[in-house]
Computed example of a mutant assay.
Amino acid sequence: MTQMVDWDLAVSTAATLTAGGPRVSITDAADVVNELRRLTDVAEQHVAAYTGLSARIDHPPVQVVDRPDWVRSNVEGLQLVMDPVIEKIQAASPPKPSPLGGAVGTVAKAVGSKATGIQVGTILGFFSSKVLGQYEVFSGTPGRLLLVAPNVLEVERKLGVDPTDFRLWVALHEVTHRTQFTAVPWLRDHFLSEVNAFVDATDLDPDALADRVRNGISALAEAVRNPDSKASVLDLVQTPAQRAVVERLTALMTLVEGHAEFVMDGVGPDVVPTVESIRARFNARRGARNPLDRLLRRLLGIEVKMRQYAEGRRFVAAVVEKVGMTGFNQIWTSPETLPLAAEIQDPDAWVARVVGAAA
């Protein structure tokens, strides 16, 4: 199989673009790592008590990583997701004779593994200094929890918040994600099946792919010329069949992100005394992006992620207020009880369909 993404180049590109992180002594760095590990265990107990969910399958311990380690972990996950797509594209696009002799795959020739590797590395380099934590579901069952120590340290310093409170607050969010996937064992398989459905819906016609690439470049150019443009590159790389899958995936991700936001603040007052101050300063920081940062975030779809946090939190809060946490937890019964995209905006509709039907 011709390599369409130079993964090694992606890692090295990200490493070149990634800043080293805040200045800290070796002793202090070790203290941060040890405390994040300890607070992850503390958070797990609080999340279980608050949500009524607890792990039903074993999971590996938290990995406290630096920025390069986070990049390498995500490259491993991306390879597992993208390699099947690459195989499908190459199978549907037989190699054509090259004027220089031999055969060159149509799509591989058009894009180039090194160019794609640089693009992937550039995106990961941007993310590597932003992500505080992540539950990485692609690398194996049931997934693994990552906390990015230099980013946690950098943000807590910029916000001027209590370090232990902030670290526990972050751990509560990420541990909630781990709890979702370990307390609901079918959730990971369902998520991966939707990703596979997205792959199966990929338009493999080389001309159609080329058109979407050109449209993506046009969107980038328009966004640079017009900062108020609402275009996102992610909106331009989907076939109609893929959009249906993306709608379901968006609803699922809005649920899991909103649930984590709801839990981290709901647990907070009892165990994180400064949670209100942390939330206020954190939200202010989210809104105080420089124009270039906002542009990149919109183009990369991160603004969609921010909306998922807010919309998902509102959905979870509304359902819990109406039927309690036990009623809300019926959401984890099966894929059929997950909220539809329209129900995210109309929690009463979900309650009527799922909880009402059960009653």
Score class of each variant (00 low, 15 high):
residue 254 T to G: 05
residue 145 L to Q: 11
residue 229 S to V: 09
residue 243 R to Q: 15
residue 173 H to Y: 02
residue 161 V to N: 02
residue 309 Y to D: 04
residue 53 L to E: 12
residue 3 Q to A: 08
residue 355 V to I: 07
residue 50 Y to C: 13
residue 254 T to H: 06
residue 14 A to N: 01
residue 341 A to H: 15
residue 321 E to S: 15
residue 176 T to L: 11
residue 148 V to F: 05
residue 169 W to D: 05
residue 254 T to C: 01
residue 349 A to W: 03
residue 352 A to I: 08
residue 359 A to Y: 02
residue 278 I to P: 00
residue 61 P to W: 07
residue 131 V to N: 00
residue 35 E to I: 07
residue 350 W to L: 14
residue 322 K to N: 10
residue 59 H to R: 15
residue 277 S to C: 09
residue 333 T to G: 10
residue 174 E to K: 11
residue 323 V to M: 05
residue 310 A to Y: 06
residue 256 V to Y: 05
residue 227 P to C: 01
residue 220 L to I: 15
residue 175 V to M: 08
residue 88 K to F: 01
residue 126 F to W: 09
residue 83 D to M: 13
residue 338 L to P: 12
residue 124 L to Y: 04
residue 201 A to P: 03
residue 276 E to V: 09
residue 257 E to A: 01
residue 221 A to F: 14
residue 119 Q to F: 10
residue 356 G to M: 08
residue 32 V to W: 10
residue 173 H to Q: 00
residue 328 F to S: 14
residue 81 V to L: 09
residue 112 G to T: 07
residue 221 A to R: 14
residue 228 D to P: 02
residue 205 D to A: 11
residue 109 K to D: 13
residue 359 A to V: 03
residue 248 R to N: 07
residue 119 Q to E: 12
residue 22 P to Y: 02
residue 119 Q to I: 09
residue 314 R to L: 05
residue 321 E to K: 14
residue 359 A to S: 06
residue 19 A to P: 04
residue 163 P to M: 10
residue 57 I to C: 09
residue 44 E to V: 14
residue 254 T to S: 08
residue 315 F to W: 03
residue 64 V to Y: 00
residue 142 P to S: 08
residue 38 R to N: 11
residue 297 R to E: 14
residue 235 D to R: 04
residue 12 S to W: 01
residue 89 I to K: 07
residue 47 V to W: 12
residue 342 A to H: 06
residue 209 L to I: 15
residue 298 R to C: 01
residue 89 I to N: 08
residue 40 T to A: 13
residue 246 V to C: 07
residue 167 R to S: 13
residue 44 E to A: 15
residue 284 A to N: 03
residue 257 E to C: 00
residue 60 P to M: 00
residue 136 E to S: 10
residue 229 S to I: 10
residue 91 A to L: 14
residue 208 A to F: 04
residue 247 E to P: 03
residue 195 V to Q: 11
residue 182 T to D: 05
residue 185 P to I: 02
residue 341 A to M: 15
residue 255 L to D: 03
residue 322 K to V: 06
residue 159 L to A: 02
residue 130 K to Q: 00
residue 254 T to E: 01
residue 239 T to D: 04
residue 54 S to A: 15
residue 149 A to C: 05
residue 149 A to L: 03
residue 144 R to K: 14
residue 51 T to K: 13
residue 192 L to V: 00
residue 286 R to W: 01
residue 37 R to I: 09
residue 117 G to L: 08
residue 80 L to D: 02
residue 38 R to Q: 14
residue 177 H to E: 06
residue 127 F to M: 04
residue 313 R to C: 07
residue 352 A to G: 04
